[in-house]
Simulated scan of single mutants.
Amino acid sequence: MRTAATTPERDLSGYLLVFMAGVLWSTVGLGIRLIEDAVVWQILFYRSLAMSVFLYAVIQMRTGRAPLSLIRAMGWPGLIAGAALVAAYSGAIFALQTTSVANAMMLFAAAPLMAALLGRVLLGEHVRRATWIAMLIALCGIAVMVWDKTSGAALKGNIAALGSALGFAVFTVALRRGKSVEMMPAVLLSGLIGTVVMAAICATLGLSLALSPRDAGIASGMGVFQVGAGLILYTLGSRTVPAAELTLLSMAEVVLGPVWVWLFLGETAAASTLAGGAILLLAIAGNALSGARRKVPPPIP
């Protein structure tokens, strides 16, 4: 007689770790708003430098191996993943400086669907019908969000936010291509690349790397606590949380991001941003939940 396997008891600590990672990531908009004078390239230099030092130490302690050797072992997929993250971070901070935090955060949420599409085109991965439907719904949500923001800085911010989402999608696909299960070396590489590239950009534009203690401290803190610590929590929690539910839990970043700037700085979101964001989040949640329902435990002989 064949009976269905029982579902194993869920590890609530894993869910809490992933949720807390989303909470840390959600404070990026507040951090950007608290910076007084630094521009995107200066912020990214300090954030990348602090993140690199922090992750280098963590990887060294966690693996007992030289972090640079782990980076070399990733090969071209790791290099592409690191470069894509630099593009994603650059687009994200530029977007947060030129459009509302709510608008930017909601557009960042398109990354999982972009990753699914790129995985189909570049890796030949199957895309479920529900995911195609979710992509169409998400496009409608994005259209609603940007409908009244099609000129000036707001338009540039929207394009940068979508570019950031594309960067994260490329990062995800590159990791799949390299069959890498360890995210930290790729993120460390992105920090190293970002530090060098942002220093070069600042030198080219005549921007000083000597920031006020406030701006340098906030930017460095973002590298350690938002990106670095958030990644560690996400990596640890993802060991026991199903992939579909990871998508839902990571949406805490999108939902809470606008809350912090409203709570501490009084920044509100436009009606079109809220309406389009709701449609986009509905598409992502529906896609994740439909995928979870398909995963039926195998029978026991």
Results as ranks from 00 to 15, higher is better:
residue 132 W to D: 10
residue 80 I to Y: 04
residue 199 A to E: 08
residue 260 W to C: 08
residue 144 V to L: 15
residue 233 L to H: 01
residue 131 T to K: 07
residue 45 F to N: 03
residue 71 I to T: 14
residue 294 R to N: 10
residue 101 V to I: 10
residue 70 L to W: 06
residue 244 A to K: 00
residue 247 T to W: 00
residue 253 E to H: 00
residue 252 A to E: 05
residue 157 G to D: 00
residue 146 V to K: 11
residue 141 G to A: 06
residue 235 T to H: 07
residue 118 L to I: 09
residue 97 Q to W: 00
residue 101 V to M: 08
residue 38 A to C: 10
residue 136 L to K: 02
residue 68 L to R: 10
residue 249 L to D: 03
residue 107 L to P: 13
residue 232 I to Q: 02
residue 266 G to V: 01
residue 51 M to F: 09
residue 1 M to E: 11
residue 288 A to K: 06
residue 139 L to V: 13
residue 11 D to L: 08
residue 294 R to E: 14
residue 95 A to C: 01
residue 279 I to E: 12
residue 231 L to D: 01
residue 229 A to G: 00
residue 209 L to H: 08
residue 37 D to L: 06
residue 207 L to I: 11
residue 239 R to V: 05
residue 127 V to P: 10
residue 127 V to M: 15
residue 237 G to N: 12
residue 126 H to S: 14
residue 253 E to Y: 00
residue 291 G to H: 11
residue 138 A to I: 05
residue 146 V to C: 14
residue 66 A to K: 11
residue 135 M to C: 15
residue 157 G to S: 02
residue 69 S to W: 02
residue 263 L to H: 07
residue 158 N to P: 13
residue 210 A to H: 14
residue 212 S to P: 07
residue 125 E to M: 05
residue 270 A to F: 08
residue 163 G to E: 10
residue 223 G to Y: 04
residue 164 S to N: 12
residue 212 S to M: 03
residue 57 A to E: 02
residue 109 A to V: 03
residue 242 P to Y: 01
residue 122 L to C: 14
residue 94 F to N: 03
residue 251 M to Y: 09
residue 39 V to T: 02
residue 25 W to N: 07
residue 71 I to N: 14
residue 263 L to E: 11
residue 63 T to W: 08
residue 104 A to M: 07
residue 295 K to D: 12
residue 269 A to W: 09
